[in-house]
Design a binder for these strands. Sequence first.
DNA 1: CCCACGACCTGTGGGC
DNA 2: TGCCCACAGGTCGTGG
Length: 287
Amino acid sequence: MPELPEVETVRRGLEPVLVGRRLTRVEARRPDLRFPLPDRFAARLEGARVEALLRRAKYLVANLDTGETLIAHLGMSGRFTIRTPMQSMAPGAFYYADDPDPTHTHIVFTTDAGDRIEYNDPRRFGFMDIAATADLAGHKSFRTLGPEPLGPEFDAAALAAAVSGSRQPVKAALLDQSVVAGLGNIYVCEALHLAGISPMRRAGRVSARRLGVLVETIRVVLEAAIAAGGSSLKDFADAQGALGYFQHRFRVYDREGAPCQREGCGGVVARRVQAGRSTFYCPICQT
DNA sequence: CCCACGACCTGTGGGC
DNA sequence: TGCCCACAGGTCGTGG
């Protein structure tokens, strides 16, 4: 899944081909992704101009000139691919590169510039919805979201308040989108390692000072990943189809048995399951 | 209210 | 080579 850095990378890739453009055709090849598509999905989008393409947590948000907004979540395996028309041998004609996986391409948008934007999602954990732009904050998906980790409202005091008294492991608390919005399994593992905090420690019992360190390591990890164009795991590619490079910089994620990269630590990366998901950490330097 | 867990869906990689 | 199980970046609903 795309976590915040991957969604931001996708947003930056789509922005130049979507913003200011009108959607001339929207093709939904099935009636649902994870959830049913909203009523008259294609009809409400066709003819609309995209005024802005934003990101909130792991959601892409396309404001339209119709007063409505398209909301998209990539789930675990969703990806957008841009296909720009290419000149064919015949004068005036053009064509698109072949879709390598048409069986999982569920939605195709075409713009007035002729670009085709394909949404492909094998597992179909992603979803799309359309809501009145004025009511977005009240949308089911947004109502309970906590602060953006890269925004001004996320600081040590805010994090301390959000986890105050919490008995759940700090790993689980950081995955809770109402505590901070946009982290996922990879970057939580990475940020906790960088901060030297054990993923198993109860969230409400991490000291204020260490929560301050954690806020900083979350920012550092996310910003580095965005700068690298996101991670490249099995399914992730940015909107142009390029692979991200951040995977090469994982300190602990998917590195069970590898030496801890903290200077002088000497530990070995361990894996254990928390809340049904793999946690990677160093048992020596994360306390 | 808080927290843990299973469900959703498909593909892939590792072990035997 | 082939089969089967475990596991994969997320979120939501349920039930204790």
